[in-house]
Every structure is written in structure tokens, then in C-alpha cells.
Amino acid sequence: MKLPSFGVEEELLLVSASGDPLPRSRAVVADLEDLDVALELSRAMVEINTPVCTTADELHDHLVHMRSQLASAAAEEGGRLLAIAVPPHGRAAQSITKKPRYQELARKWGLLAREQGVCGCHVHVGVPDKETATKVSNHLRPWLPVLLALSANSPIYLGQDTGFASWRWLMTTRWPSAGPPPYLESADHYDALVAMHLAAGTLIDEQMVYWDIRPSSHLPTVEVRVSDVPLTVDETVLIATLVRAIVLTALDDGSKGPTLEPEVLRAAYWLAARDGLTARGLDVLRAEAMPMADVILELVRHVEPALRQLDAVDLVRDGVQRSLREGNGAVKQRKAFREGNDVVDLTEVTGQS
């Protein structure tokens, strides 16, 4: 089997020298013609889109280059670029980008849209067609809380510790079609659910399907959207490689994937969002509570044959052990906050970050 290609979208936050959201995204990206960058709903956010990649090293190099170029462009506009999933300072309501679609979102969803200045990491993995994407989605569902726990990078919001490792996840799940996707019987089932939302007015278009996994509306990929934007490039590459390995495992399996008790999946999400790496999680396939570290290692074991095919066993094992030993963005932000340090300094994109 040909190994699936992959790529990443990273949303990054622009802030002023004082750390408040800086609504200058259009000016920051104006001269970055050689990079695939996009404006987001909030004028204080910018999205980078890597090229299609076939190796983890390739993905790493693209992310380092793109983050660095964007950080330099932000500095030229008097700003700072942060790899952080929610604004650490300022106020909740953000300025909306002046694009017709975003302005319509603001009109119809009010404060919900204006408070959506949150930054995620979306991993795209190539699949043959939408039918395959729906089957892969079912295989990915059990591992979504694990990916959230690994990437959690949003405990500090507007100057306070929220009590959650991923406050971003709590904010994003307020939308009509957000959070874990339903179990999908087929591509027709997916299309019918989207059509229902459109007819009801809970979506304005298919791009508003904010489920944590979805068939891409414009690319031949399955898109996994559960993660906070990680603090470091190494963490992003780890998340993307795990997602790619789960997809490859699903493609080798060929079945529709396991059904899950929705309440177990909900509880697993809640634990991952609240505690991240630092406490207990749930093995959703067995509805069994265990330390989150053990649930993560269950995922690594599940995809180990795929990791061997991808020549990524050491990358993933080393990356997971480093995260468990040193902490992810949420752990490091909380430590800085407790010690009286500004998380802006910790999360600013510089050099190889």
C-alpha cells in the first residue's frame, strides 16, 4: 500500500508588545507571497498551511521555516507571534476579519464568533475518497481524547488559570457542529447530516462542520481538528505522525471501525481537556479509567505496525516520553504562571520553535 501523504494547518496568535491580541493579520501576511498563509476569523490570528509532505523530517522543516518567516513578519508590524491556543491577555471579544463569510458568521452567531480567537492544529492525511474518509473517521474517534491531551496548550486565558489544560476545546465545542463526530455509516450519511444542518440554519456552509474529524470539503483528505496548536514544532510533528499512523492502521483494517458509548467518549474528552497529561484518562474502547500516560502508550502500541511502515517508531516513542517527562504546553504554561512569569514569553515563536 502506498503510504498516505500528510500536511498541517497551524493557527497562530498575533499579540502586541504587552501581549494583548493584535488585529493586524492582513498587514502581517501582505508580503509573504512565498508562503501558504491564510487569514482567520479573528484579525489577531494567522494560519499557515504546509505543503503536502511524505516524511516527518519534511514536515518539520516546513513548519520551522513557516513559523520563523511569520514571526519575522509579525515583528515588522510591531507584533509578536505566539504558539498558544487562547489569548493569554486582553478581552474575550476579538475584532473580526473583514471577509464576507466571517462577517456573516459574526452577524449570525454574535459573541460566540467574536470570542472565537482560538488556535488549533489541523492534520490532513490523504485518503482515496470521501467514503474512505468516513470509515477512517470512525477508527480515529477512540483516540481523539488522547490527541487532545498530548497537544493541550491553553490553560491560561485572559490572565487567569482556567483549571483546564485545554480551554480552547471548551470554547470550540459551543458551536452547533463541533466536538467528536458521530459514527458515520457512509459518505451518504455524512452528506445527509450536513444537509440537515444547512436546512436548519445551524451551518452556513460545509466549512462550518467543526467536528474534530471531517472529510475535507476541498482536499482529498481526512482532516483531524482536535488538537490545540502545540507549543513546539516537535510536538506538532508528533501529533501529525500519530494521526497519520492511525489513518494507515485504519486503511489496513478496512472495517467501518468500532462503535463507542457516547457517554464514555464524552467523559474521556472532558478528562483530557481538564487534566491533559497529568492525571487519569479513559480507555474508551474498554470504558476503563487509567493514568493518561497509559492511555497514550495504548495508542502507541495500537499504531506500532504503521509506525514501522512510516519509519517513525523512534520519533513517536521519543516524543511521547519527552512530553511525559518534560510536560506539554499546558504543563509549561502553568509552571510559568505559578512562578509569576508571563506565558507570552514562553509561547513566543522564535528560532526553531
Rank of each mutant, 00 (worst) to 15 (best):
W143N: 01
P128H: 10
P181F: 05
R174M: 14
W143Q: 01
L144F: 03
G163Y: 05
H139A: 03
L148T: 01
V136H: 06
G126Y: 09
P180N: 11
D129C: 12
I156N: 05
W167R: 13
A178R: 07
S137F: 03
Y190T: 00
P142G: 02
D129M: 12
P128F: 08
T172Y: 09
K130C: 12
V123C: 04
H139L: 06
P155Q: 08
V146M: 07
E131Y: 08
L148E: 00
A165V: 07
N138S: 07
S177K: 10
I156T: 09
S186W: 13
V136W: 13
D188T: 09
D191E: 15
A133Q: 03
A152N: 11
P180W: 05
L158Q: 05
D191T: 04
A165Q: 11
I156L: 06
S166H: 07
T162Q: 05
W169M: 05
L170Q: 14
Y190S: 00
R168Q: 09
S186H: 04
V136D: 08
T162P: 05
T134Q: 11
S154I: 05
A178G: 08
L158V: 01
A149E: 04
R168E: 04
K135G: 07
L184P: 10
P181G: 01
D161V: 00
T134S: 03
S137R: 02
H122V: 03
F164Y: 13
N153V: 09
T173H: 00
I156Q: 04
I156M: 05
V127A: 06
Y190V: 00
L147K: 05
L144Q: 01
D191C: 01
I156W: 12
E131I: 03
P145K: 03
P142W: 12
I156Y: 12
M171C: 05
